[in-house]
Simulated scan of single mutants.
Amino acid sequence: MTDATHDIPTNASAAGPHGEGPPQLFDRVLLKQRKNRAAGEFDDYNFLHARAAEDLIDRVSAVTRDFDTCLVLGGGGAVGRALKKRPDVAGKFGHVIEADLAQGLARTSTFKGLVLDEERLPIAEESVDIVLSCLSLHWTNDLVGALIQLNRALRPDGFFAGALLGGSTLTELRQSMMAAESELAGGVSARVSPFADTIDMAGLMARAGFAMPVSDVDRVTARYGNSFVLMRDLRKMGETSVLKTRPREPVTKRFFVRTAEIYSEKFAHEDGKIPATFEILHAAGWAPHPDQPKPKRPGSATVRLADALGVDERNAGQKAGD
């Protein structure tokens, strides 16, 4: 494991300080600290990362080509372990390099492990053939900016597939915390990090310059005995809030007890267990290449839709059977 980009050409300018940019929602230094803290027991609590990694591998298995250099971002080694179980997919790659923001997680890599920051990716343009991102991009302050960097790192016709947490993630916990704080303090604070909306991941990919972008959603419901167990698991995953605007004053025990009570009252199943929703957004696309298929110009069709479907064409307002 190393924090240099050995075996990948570097782009030194990418590692420089930010200039004017988007608002800094997340404390990335704190995120790194918490992920390092979680690294020791991460394998016991990484069920979401394992699921996302397996889905990423399935998506690559459907691509009928090989890739020389594969860069994996995030996942705490989950993608490498999933690849070891799928030699049919692992055989598509000449070299696999796993990278993580936290040194502790990078050490768990099955393949060569690096420490990289997705927000300032020190990878030379057009230097890798495929990038897989496993549950890390939802912590970036500028998601489109991170996607642009990944697009630039890909060689022409290179492939990107990523998984990140979406906007409905932990909706039950968010609602319960807000209700508890409103009841006890007369106001609410942001205590659960915001996540990317599900509405248009393909649109964000297109904005970042990817060709033929696609996206879909995997919704996972985990069940817990109570919200204390859920929050423990989030800490062990390294997925607790790192909002820059998070409240700094100590939280009372009564707040967490009342959160647990409201969570149970509003959401518990008949057996008393509580659900926790995790929304995993998947997105994929290709680095542009001149030989890729292009959408046809509007109005350039040479066959009527009715003829293609084998039906009779009717005027607007004409009823079937007229």
Rank of each mutant, 00 (worst) to 15 (best):
M201A: 11
E125W: 02
K32P: 02
F160M: 12
R232M: 15
S193M: 12
Q24W: 03
A180K: 07
G209P: 03
A106S: 15
Q175I: 09
D7E: 08
V217F: 07
G145F: 02
L101S: 08
G167E: 12
G74A: 12
R28Q: 03
E265L: 05
D307R: 06
L230G: 05
G310P: 10
F195M: 08
P293W: 03
T198W: 07
A39M: 06
K296D: 10
L143S: 07
A208H: 04
R248K: 14
A179E: 13
V214Y: 00
G285V: 15
V63E: 15
I97F: 02
L121Q: 06
A185W: 01
G186R: 05
G225S: 11
K85F: 04
L71I: 07
P87N: 12
L114F: 03
R297T: 15
F278P: 05
E249W: 01
D129K: 01
V220T: 15
H269T: 07
P213C: 04
T302K: 12
A163T: 14
K32V: 07
D197P: 14
L25G: 01
S215N: 12
N36M: 08
T140K: 01
L121C: 09
L281E: 08
A14H: 08
V63A: 13
K112V: 08
D233K: 04
A306L: 05
L154E: 11
G76M: 02
H282W: 04
S241A: 11
A4I: 14
R297A: 14
E270H: 11
M1C: 08
V144W: 02
I57V: 15
A202C: 12
D129C: 06
G16H: 07
A53N: 11
A82K: 00
A222M: 06
K319L: 11
G299Y: 13
A62Q: 12
L143R: 04
T171P: 00
P288F: 04
R304K: 14
M1G: 15
A316Q: 09
T240M: 04
V214P: 01
F67Q: 04
G80N: 03
P295R: 06
V217M: 11
I57G: 06
E54L: 03
A52P: 06
G321D: 04
H18Y: 12
R223I: 09
I148S: 06
K92V: 15
N11P: 00
